[in-house]
Structure formats: C-alpha cells, structure tokens
C-alpha cells in the first residue's frame, strides 16, 4: 500500500523544479582549481566597501543562495552591497598537496584584486563554517585589509563535546590520507550521515514520504539534498593539517597556529566583528565560537543567534529576523 502510494507520486517528484544557486554571477578569475566570482546586480550604485564571501572547503557555496526567499547573497545584493565569493572548486587527486596556506594566499589574491577593481583600501570578509576560520586567519594576518569580519556557523575552539568533534579527535588523518589521498566526498557523506543515522537516514526521508503532497516541502527537500550530497573532496594535506592542528591540537583558539612561519594571533583582529550562531548546531556548536569574542581586540563586536541547526541558519525562513539585523549591521559599516 505504501509502495503503491509512493510509485504514484514518483512523476510529481520528477516534475518538481528545484533549482539551486539562483543569483547570476561572473567568474572574474580562475587559478586552476580556485575561482573568484562576482555576483551580478542591476543596481549600479553600490555601497563603498565590497564583501568577499569565504565559503568552507566542505560542500558547495550555493547553500548561501539556495532559493530566492532565503538567499543570503540576494539579501546582501538587495541591501546594495557589492558581493564577491571564492569558489574552492572540486579538488582532484592532482590537488592533494594543497595546504591551508594556499587557501589563505588565494584569499589574499582576491582581496587585492577586489581592492584594485573597486579602488578601496579594504574589503569586508564573510566566512561560512570552516571558511570562517580561513577568514579569521586572514584577518589576523592582514587586519589592514579587512573592513568588517562576519563569521557564521564556524568552530574556532575545536575541543567541544559534540559527536563530530569527538570522532575527529580520535582519527589519524595521516594514516587516512596516506592511503586514500584526498578525503573523498563519499567518505565525508558517510561520516555526516552516520553521526546521526536515525534523524538523517530515517526521520528525514520519512518526513518526505509524509509530505509528498506538499509541493513547497518537496521542492525544498530536493534542493537541500542536492546540496548535502554535493561534496567535493578535501585535499589530503589540508585534511591532515586541519584535523591535526585544529581538532587535535586546537591551535587556533590558543594562538599557536602558524602559517608560512607567521603565528596567527587573534588579538590582531581589531576590525568590527559580527558572529552568527545557530543554537542547535551539531557541527559547530555555539560554545565552539563564543570564546573567540574574548580573544580579539575589536571594540565593535556583536553575536547574533537563531534557534536553528547548522544548515538552517542559512536556509531557513525562520532565520529571516536574524539576517535582517545582520545585513543592517554590515550595511552600516560599509558606507
């Protein structure tokens, strides 16, 4: 009976339009794997200081532009912000020796590129999840280039008690990467599913089967699943580095992390900082980022939170109020 009911709904599922990544953009620079993109907007008059979105090297950045109603990119563009983004691409076996310093170098390249293109002396950085860690590292090394720092859903204190952090502290990344090279998208998908198998393998899909007649529900479900399973590999050296130095040794929050011989000192972060937190985040729990605010020397700092999960922070209609405040904060400091 259930099977027959489902088979009747398959056509509806096939016909559901579920586009992702709705805002047009132009690729302005490519560096083999990495790309700098510039979002297009009809408004000619933009606020003075552009925003560079620094996404994570896990999953794909279009979660910030999932569909019109919730797109953060769209919100920023509508607020007259000039929005750019780094796309870290899909690493291949040939990219296995990329290190975190290579990501920081490319952020630096993008910052200088945008500064020159827009004739400004600094730009704002908006980091998402591990991209937030990259944005923090860059801001600590080059505070003179950063107008405002916005970070969302990221861990910076990695010694937290959430399941994923417990697991990461017990794996040997050198052994893994010596064997399989890059941490493949399949391995990451496996880990992210088995960390919560009942909710992510059972409850989620039972919820879909319960709501097959709800067109909007089905549309959003398909969009989310497209994104969730669109997992690039993590380059082997990057995987080894961040698991060892961040998850195992927690060097970032202890000001012990070193990039190209230079220590990353969080006290160097003196620009306005906005931290966005999801209270039910099982990947980057709130306690993993709250200590950060006491480590920086910024006078102008704010934390906003919403009662959502890691992904819901960016994709839920229920986060609108928080995003309205966040965008207003950025706009005020971008004139």
């Amino acid at each position: 009976m259930i099977v027959e009911g489902f088979l009747k709904s398959v056509k509806k599922l096939v016909e559901t339009e579920a586009k992702v990544g709705v805002t047009a953009y132009e690729i302005v620079h490519e560096d083999w794997l990495f790309k700098l993109v510039h979002f297009k907007d009809k408004k000619k008059k933009k606020l003075k200081y552009p925003v560079l979105i620094v996404y994570a090297y896990i999953n794909r950045p279009y979660v910030m532009d999932l569909f019109d109603e919730v797109s953060i990119i769209r919100k920023e563009l509508d607020a007259n912000l000039d929005v750019w983004m780094v796309d870290w691409g899909y690493p291949k076996p040939a990219d296995k020796y990329l290190r975190i310093e290579d990501y920081i170098d490319y952020i630096d390249f993008c910052v200088e590129y945008i500064k020159e293109a827009k004739k400004v002396d600094k730009i704002s950085l908006h980091g998402y999840c591990l991209g937030g860690d990259l944005a923090i590292i860059y801001s600590a090394l080059h505070p003179e280039n950063v107008k405002n720092l916005v970070i969302q859903a990221l861990p910076i204190d990695f010694h937290t008690s959430n399941t994923l952090a417990l697991w990461a502290r017990k794996i040997d990344p050198e052994k893994i990467t010596k064997t399989i090279g890059n941490a493949s998208g399949d391995l990451l998908n496996f880990a992210f599913l088995i960390v919560d198998p009942i909710r992510l393998v059972l409850a989620k899909y039972q919820g879909l089967l319960e709501n097959l007649d709800n067109e909007k529900f089905v549309e959003n479900f398909i969009r989310m699943d497209k994104w969730i399973f669109d997992s690039p590999s993590i380059p082997a050296e990057t995987f080894k580095e961040y698991i060892t130095e961040w998850y195992h040794e927690n060097k970032l929050i202890k000001n012990e992390y070193v990039i190209k011989g230079e220590k990353v000192n969080l006290r160097n972060i003196n620009m306005p900082v906005l931290v966005l937190v999801a209270e039910r985040d099982h990947i980057s729990p709130p306690e993993s980022v709250k200590p950060f605010l006491n480590m920086i020397s910024s006078k102008d700092k704010l934390l906003l939170s919403v009662n959502k999960g890691h992904i819901g922070l960016s994709t839920s209609r229920g986060a609108k109020e928080m995003w309205d405040k966040a965008i207003a904060w950025i706009v005020e400091r971008s004139k």
Binding site: I2, V3, F6, L13, Y205, I222, D225, K226, F229
Partner: peptide, 21 residues
Amino acid sequence: LYFKLPKESFELLLRNVIIRE
C-alpha cells in the same frame, strides 16, 4: 528520478519506502 536526485538521495528514498511499509 534516479537522474534527477543525488544517488544517495535516490537510494535512501527507496529504502525508506520499504521501511515505511
């Protein structure tokens, strides 16, 4: 449907139909 959804979604969806039964 197989070509529309990620392979993981397709498999998990079909398994959940059997599970629901």
